[in-house]
Design a protein around this nucleic acid. Structure first.
Length: 359
DNA sequence: AATTCGGGGTT
DNA sequence: AACCCAGAATT
């Protein structure tokens, strides 16, 4: 431990050389637009680079700066985010853009405390934007950096923010006062490309000689995997069509898939038949009995903690006088394209579009 | 401190 | 199937 500062210069030198020759060229790197860097950081939360790239490009076209984002409708914002997941991120971007416009004259505050208060700016994103956009000296601890540092230290705890204190202590030895942005980027890139969760490429690693896990051959078991329990769910979906329009409803503004639109329906209860679930859910949501139900199609969709099978039934309502005007709408499939919908529902929409082509 | 919140790719 | 990903907000 006492010798660590002695190795710091070598550590940084080797890391810099590796980064210059092996880092990927990404559209949010080597730019200084704090808005674009902010957008990229939020999109990349719990999301792979490959998934983000097309969304990032389209987003910058639709909302090129803070002002344009702050003036957009939430529906348009959510539609641009559709399929990326964690929709609270998009809502927070929208909210924060309004605060930045109203309180900070359209410029992202460069102060840690002020930035940290904005919706969606947690410890990581605040440090990342301060570092990458404003060249401020904050260590950005993301899952990549945590894994790299935990292996360097040889600790066997889970990947948990509660252990950050030890990592920050480690960071202090190596964190260069200048070139903060570069150092953060390099550690993250090393974690993404070389110090990977599985099958790390230690033979290519520029800092393996300092790595305690590598020395002990424990790089595969650090960090310990998270505990997960995986559930299976079945749900019914009512496709209710009148002329060429379909009935859709808006989800609550909190919780899963907040503010997205979907067809009515819900989860099948234990011991309940699918048709029974359909009748019960429609009674609960639309205050109406259903009639003439006919099975249409079945769709699977996997989330992180559970897996859902959607059973779509075409059907009619016996009475439809109780519809909530704000939450329910009749729309054509073409009009539905401007509504943000969950990816599972999008699969059903695709089925309906194919069916209309054939008819 | 533990849980919730998406979706897609990899192994 | 299980696991992971440039985490944040809520409970």
């Amino acid at each position: 431990m006492e010798n660590r500062p002695k190795y710091a210069a070598s550590f940084r030198k080797r890391l810099r050389a590796w980064y210059k020759t092996h880092s990927r060229k990404l559209p949010w790197r080597e730019i200084h637009d704090s808005y674009k860097i902010w957008i990229s950081e939020v999109m990349l939360q719990q999301t792979t680079v490959q998934a983000v790239l097309p969304y990032y490009r389209e987003w910058i076209k639709l909302f090129p700066d803070v002002k344009s984002l702050s003036q957009a409708t939430l529906q348009k914002v959510l539609k641009a985010w559709q399929g990326l997941g964690y929709y609270q991120r998009a809502k927070n971007l929208h909210r924060a853009s309004k605060i930045i416009t109203d309180k900070f004259g359209g410029k992202i505050p460069q102060n840690y405390e002020e930035m940290r208060k904005l919706p969606g700016f947690g410890p990581y994103t605040t440090a990342a934007v301060l570092s990458f956009a404003f060249n401020k000296s904050y260590p950005a601890l993301d899952a990549n950096v945590r894994r790299v540092l935990m292996r360097q230290l040889g600790e066997r705890y889970k990947l948990n923010p509660a252990n950050d204190k030890a990592l920050f202590e480690f960071f202090k030895f190596y964190f260069p006062p200048k070139e903060t942005s570069f150092f953060n980027q390099a550690l993250m890139e090393l974690g993404a490309l070389v110090c990977r969760p599985k099958n790390p490429l230690c033979f290519l690693c520029p800092i393996s000689q300092f790595c305690q896990a590598y020395e002990e051959g424990k790089q595969e078991v650090i960090p310990r995997p998270k505990n997960r329990n995986y559930r299976k769910i079945e749900a019914v979906v009512a496709i209710i069509r009148k002329n060429r329009k379909y009935l859709i409803q808006k989800r609550p503004s909190k919780g899963l898939l907040a503010d997205l639109w979907e067809f009515p329906g819900g989860k099948r209860k234990e011991g309940e038949k699918l048709e029974e679930a359909l009748h019960r859910e429609i009674k609960e949501e639309l205050s109406s009995e259903v009639k003439d139900e006919r099975f249409l199609t079945r769709v699977h969709h996997a989330y992180t903690q559970f897996q859902v099978t959607l059973y779509a039934y075409e059907c009619s309502l016996k009475n439809e006088t109780q519809l909530n005007k704000g939450r329910h709408r009749w729309v054509t499939l073409k009009a539905l394209r401007s509504y943000p919908v969950p990816s599972g529902s999008a699969k059903i929409v695709k089925f309906l579009e194919e069916r209309e082509k054939i008819r």
